[in-house]
Design a protein around this nucleic acid. Structure first.
Lengths: 211, 211
DNA sequence: TTTTTTTTGTTGCAACCGCAACAAAAAAAT
DNA sequence: ATTTTTTTGTTGCGGTTGCAACAAAAAAAA
């Protein structure tokens, strides 16, 4: 539990106290189960302790479409969903454990002298980090060509690791999804970059070549 | 000031008190002026009261590149920027008025009985709304073809307005930038959609045709 | 009102990219 | 250790899209 972002820098005593004070409930869900429905009218908040859940939209034909995915540490719930006026639900996309609480409880909890400030800071940190992740991805997605998307992404990794040689944090298949391009077209472009002497790539290790 | 998201549902008395308590400073900047530099080490926070500012990265060649843009109501600062290890600055991209405060002050302010909870809720709301905007844009950007990007965006507007006929909230030029596609290619695709009887478009009014 | 700037609309062309389909390699599961 | 699943690597083809370049319309500024 201490490895969950929202509980960063809090002792297990604090966490226990938080769970009691905020009247949290911990529940597990099998893949495919509905965790929340009718999201819009709900003040309920969920925190992903384990697994992966999806925010899905149900249109008037009853078709499900994935709106976003929440991973370990992420916070979700009515107050954290968008302003559209259709039905939203949360379903478990993997076997998941969820910690439930209430938005108002969470806000009120901030008044606690021992852990209130830290909890609040953690929640903000969580949201800000999500914003930054999205921001990074948008920066990459707005590049026009696959080559530019790849190079932009590689440059970000270069800065993150402070090295011109780094490991990709995902499979090439996942990378093509992240970049929203066709995998085979991406593979072709990687080959071109290699042939043009701009990068080296062996497995997941990428090296940028400056000359 | 009451129309700024972070001050939603607060009286002008509250706002005055907040500004005093959090030791805020209000400053104006001409276009091009540097608002913050050396962002990373700073606990300083800015709120855009008027205008528009840019978060820019300065690489080792001294080249500026835009990382993100903050509009009226947005919060920016070191604690709200990413985890890369390069120099970041905030510059005014238009004539702007900024309210400055300190991250720790803001967190501490939450303890105030009168406006603490509301202020906290507003800050969260602000962050969550940004996440949702980004989320929406990513949903659109990850569509593979210009046609699919347009239709996805139109469907979002359809839901937002609860109508198959709506006004575009921006110029076509701006839309092409939002979708990260070439403007003329987008224009061509709009024509195709019209010819295929899928949409009507006159100026900024778009109507989706279901048959 | 006139001038200037921005936006819209259009087209040819070449490069780019998605798609389909497959084989080999690697990883995960049994 | 063997089977199954996932990932990687490759290619031809045709549709899509970025680019350049321009004219007309609309909006904003003078």
């Amino acid at each position: 539990m201490e490895n969950i972002g929202i509980f960063y820098n809090l002792t297990s005593n604090d966490i226990e106290d938080i769970i009691k004070t905020l009247k949290c409930r911990k529940l597990s869900f099998k893949k495919g189960m509905t965790i929340m429905s009718n999201l819009k009218r709900s003040n309920e908040i969920g925190i992903v302790l384990d697994g992966e859940v999806s925010l899905v939209r149900i249109d008037f034909y009853g078709t499900l479409s994935n709106v976003s995915t929440y991973y370990i540490g992420d916070i979700f719930g009515g107050k954290f969903s968008d302003d559209s006026n259709e039905e939203l639900s949360i379903i478990a996309s993997k076997q998941s454990t969820i910690l439930f609480t209430d938005y108002n409880q969470l806000i009120k909890g901030q008044l606690n002298k021992t852990w209130g400030e830290q909890l609040n800071e953690n929640i903000m940190e969580q949201l800000v980090s999500k914003i930054n992740n999205y921001n990074t991805r948008i920066e990459v997605l707005t590049k026009k060509t696959i080559r530019d998307k790849l190079l932009e992404y590689f440059h970000i990794l270069e800065k993150r690791t402070s090295s011109t040689s780094f490991m990709l944090p995902m499979t090439l298949t996942a990378l093509s999804e992240y970049l929203a391009v066709d995998r085979s077209a991406m593979q072709r472009e990687l080959k071109n970059l290699k042939q043009d002497g701009i990068i080296e790539i062996n497995g997941k290790r990428v090296t940028l070549i400056y000359r």
